[in-house]
């Protein structure tokens, strides 16, 4: 327990050091922020938008906002939570404008390249790829507020508490949005081919 607390304290200190170096104009500090959180933000933007090109734009714009405002970070939350919040707010405002267009019949875009795991056979990868496409497509049909909870919990691995801080909602709301998002996915996927059982290798 003590070890966990001291790790958290060390992380918080390294967050603040990083931001302090950025504030004093050290370009390596922002590079470090991107190195730590670039993949996480891109993945979030991609899963929320369902479009790899748009995700690249969203990521770049979100990091420009981070570059301009990270100097104001005072360590009230973890830097990771703060970065998530900036990225998520940016996605929301950009995607809300897109929602003004007709889209009920639009097919979600194809998912982009996934990081290749060399330990898997080509057959496994093909099955995983097909399953991934169907899940990605289904995810795009889930209401945004539920999708955010599912993406943050099941794909990005945040805890309920972290999600509550990122979204600025109560724990009970996180739990209910996650449940509704998963339930919606189940309903959508059951209309098509069932997914592989949980115990599949």
């Amino acid at each position: 327990m003590e070890a966990a607390e001291s790790t958290a304290a060390a992380l918080a200190q390294s967050d603040l050091d990083l931001v302090e170096r950025h504030r004093y104009g050290d370009p390596a500090a922002f590079e470090e922020v991107y190195r730590r959180y670039g993949e996480m933000v891109y993945s979030l933007c991609h899963r929320l938008s369902g479009d790899p090109d748009l995700a690249a734009d969203l990521t770049q714009e979100a990091f420009l906002r981070i570059f301009r405002h990270v100097g104001k970070f005072r360590g009230g939350s973890s830097l990771k939570t703060w970065v998530y919040r900036v990225a998520l707010n940016h996605c929301r405002s950009r995607l809300a404008r897109r929602r003004l267009f007709w889209r009920s019949l639009a097919e979600p875009d194809e998912p982009g390249p996934e990081a290749v795991d060399p330990g898997r056979s080509p057959e496994d990868r093909a099955i995983a790829h097909d399953e991934g496409r169907r899940l990605t497509r289904a995810l795009a049909a889930v209401p945004v507020a539920y999708r955010e909870a599912v993406v943050l919990f099941d794909l990005q691995g945040l805890s309920y508490e972290e999600i509550a801080r990122v979204l600025g909602v109560r724990l009970g709301t996180v739990r209910s949005r996650l449940a509704r998002g998963r339930e919606r996915l189940r309903q959508i996927l059951e209309e098509g081919e069932p997914l592989a059982p949980e115990s599949s290798p």
Partner: peptide
Amino acid sequence: LDGLQRVVAGLHRLEPLAPP
């Protein structure tokens, strides 16, 4: 419950997306 477990397992199998 079975359907839900499949969904959650499928989500966990999705690999992180690499930025270009």
